[in-house]
Design a protein around this nucleic acid. Structure first.
Lengths: 348, 348
DNA sequence: CCTCGTATAGAAAGCGCTTGCTGTGCAGCT
DNA sequence: AGCTGCACAGCAAGCGCTTTCTATACGAGG
């Protein structure tokens, strides 16, 4: 039915071993033989059986990329960059690897299941992107899994995610705390003293770090934070919209709203506008990430640019062993404050 | 070194066959035995060897999703929906399948290579999303590949992509032509007579269909199109920005700009604004797709909503054999005109 | 002329799992 | 009691490939 190595071998009048060697090209084969084999491959339209090959060789060419939400450009951009480096067809790398992106939807269970699935496939490498969930049992479970993967020879890289100690995983971490602080300091510098904060979901490292940065800035400038000024939500526009209305209800005198990320900030802008407030004259708005659409907001969004693409590319190269690991297995990646039109001095 | 089925069998005091049957659950096993096996699995922390299993069973649990650009929410949203249905951990489906999304970057070669890679992995199903490239040799090559995949038992579904005759692939096609026409008719209805069109890359079916719809509308209303009114570009914001400046240069009297998609439309808005033109008072702008951010544009974007999520979900179900195929293997999915703030009557 | 090293090619032993077929023991039947 | 049928469990044969080890051929060196 389907063409196998043996068929090719028969047609080329050589042994299966030779065909395998021609295909893998890591053993001397006479030019004439090679050509004969390749012709046979072509004529029979032979396609290697991946599983069989992976079984025999005890390695596969699969590389997993775990993302929280594939519909979110934040992850899409990283995934795209990682994948470009991983190889995949046309990638920079030589060998053809199947870069597979797995959508965890932010769920710890799914994350774990995907890791098992990848372990089952004997993936060559795994890259986990985005913040982690800070739930003790889950963290332990993931750590254990990562350790197992590493032991089995799978290279593990964390991209935009905090380090996982003792797992052998390389971590490229975003400096969310520092970025958050810088952003809020910019606002304080403009004269703002009453700042609302729309945080992401609790229990996520990203949420916590950004919020900590924000608070650190307040503290450094002796601004006492009102607990009503913080609202938690999801990392999407809708959430930003709703949270902003809530914030406005709680304290209509706020002069600035800092959002967990750009999507949330966009939702905040919509809510403010609908409430008859002008940006930035009445209320300043700031985001985080600097996704492509942020510059198109009106006014364009002040935010912290995260080098998503560069970080992804680096993670991909490390995963492929084409770039040296950072010292200590950990690298911190800073964001850059992008001051744009959505922030200005408060009116009075 | 690594734990195998045999180890589990030994520990549970049963034969490997029994362990396999417990794990696959499609053969009667006494409850007590099953439990013993499961305990052993747990104690040994056994993880099935995917390749070995795939080899022996001649099937794998991989499902491929091909997208043009994973960083583009258009694809992200579809991929997310497809994947949710495919199963993957936590998905609606029962079995755990590895939904892998492959980023072709719009390149025909990569597309082909990925298909081969998936064929090599003996994927259970493949979903191709987004428009295709209209290049005869490539179309033929893809068709041949799809036929092969189908023959090998891989279910092939096209989502938002034109049908591929004689390949056995199921197609869910977007009615790009109709949507394009409706959009332009809306503009004409508002009184516009000089409309610029920013098309996507040539050779893509999506580009052609949308453009054809636009032209059909013009023709139906006896508007003669000036060749200067059409510019081709990429499907991104940047391209929309540049194309708009070009359009303005060619004919400053245009009263409306129709963009190939929402990202392009956003770029167009930016260019118009920077040129000192108001939207929609001076120039109306329209997009296509209705991606989430479109409603946040200021003014919010008139566009054609494509039910990306629904289409993806349906494609996913069909790929899993959980939904009946449409009659003739082809279904056409209509877009819905969303009239918003970015379009209005021309000034005079 | 014979022995070797070198360059290739082949034989064969798995890799870890699935599954058709073959037992085995026990309840139910005549 | 003897037999049939059923519910499980095991045997063993692969699945299609990789890779170690062995065989062959040839030119070179002694």
């Amino acid at each position: 039915m389907t063409v196998t190595l043996a068929d090719v071998a028969a047609r080329a009048q050589v042994s299966p071993a030779t065909v395998s060697r021609v295909l893998n090209g890591n053993y001397p084969v006479a030019a004439s033989t090679r050509e004969r084999v390749l012709r046979a491959v072509d004529e029979l339209d032979y396609v290697l059986n991946g599983p069989a090959s992976a079984l025999a060789a005890a390695t596969s060419d699969l590389v997993g990329i775990l993302v929280n939400d594939i519909a979110d450009p934040f992850f899409g951009i990283m995934a795209s960059a990682i994948q470009a480096e991983i190889g995949g067809p046309g990638g920079r790398a030589g060998g053809e690897r199947l870069a597979v992106v797995c959508n965890t939807g932010g769920s710890p269970e799914r994350e774990l299941t995907y890791l098992t699935l990848l372990q089952r496939q004997r993936a060559a490498a795994v890259v986990l992107t985005g913040g982690a969930v800070e739930n003790a049992p889950h963290v332990a479970a993931v750590s254990a899994k990562l350790r197992k993967l590493a032991e089995a020879g799978t290279r593990v890289v964390l991209c935009g995610r905090p380090p996982a100690p003792d797992t052998g995983a390389i971590a490229l971490t975003f400096e969310n705390r520092g970025g958050g602080r810088e952003l809020t300091e910019h606002l304080i510098g403009l004269g703002h003293r009453r700042l609302g904060y729309i945080a992401g979901p609790e229990e996520r490292t990203t949420t916590r770090h950004r919020l900590e940065g924000h608070r650190a800035a307040l503290k450094a400038h002796d601004i006492e934070e009102d607990p009503r000024w913080t609202v938690h939500g999801r990392y999407d526009r809708r959430s930003g919209y709703e949270a902003t209305l809530e914030l406005l209800r709680r304290d209509p005198t706020l002069t600035a709203v800092v959002a967990a990320n750009d999507s949330v900030a966009l939702g905040a802008c919509a809510a403010l506008r609908e409430s008859g407030l002008r940006i930035p004259e009445d209320v300043s708005v700031a985001g985080f990430d600097d996704l492509p659409f942020s510059i198109d907001a009106v006014p364009s969004l002040t935010t912290v640019r995260l080098p998503l693409s560069e970080a992804g590319a680096r993670a991909g190269r490390i995963a492929m062993g084409r770039e040296e690991e950072p010292p200590g297995g950990i690298a911190t990646i800073r964001g850059e404050l992008m001051v744009r039109g959505s922030t200005g001095a408060p009116r009075k």
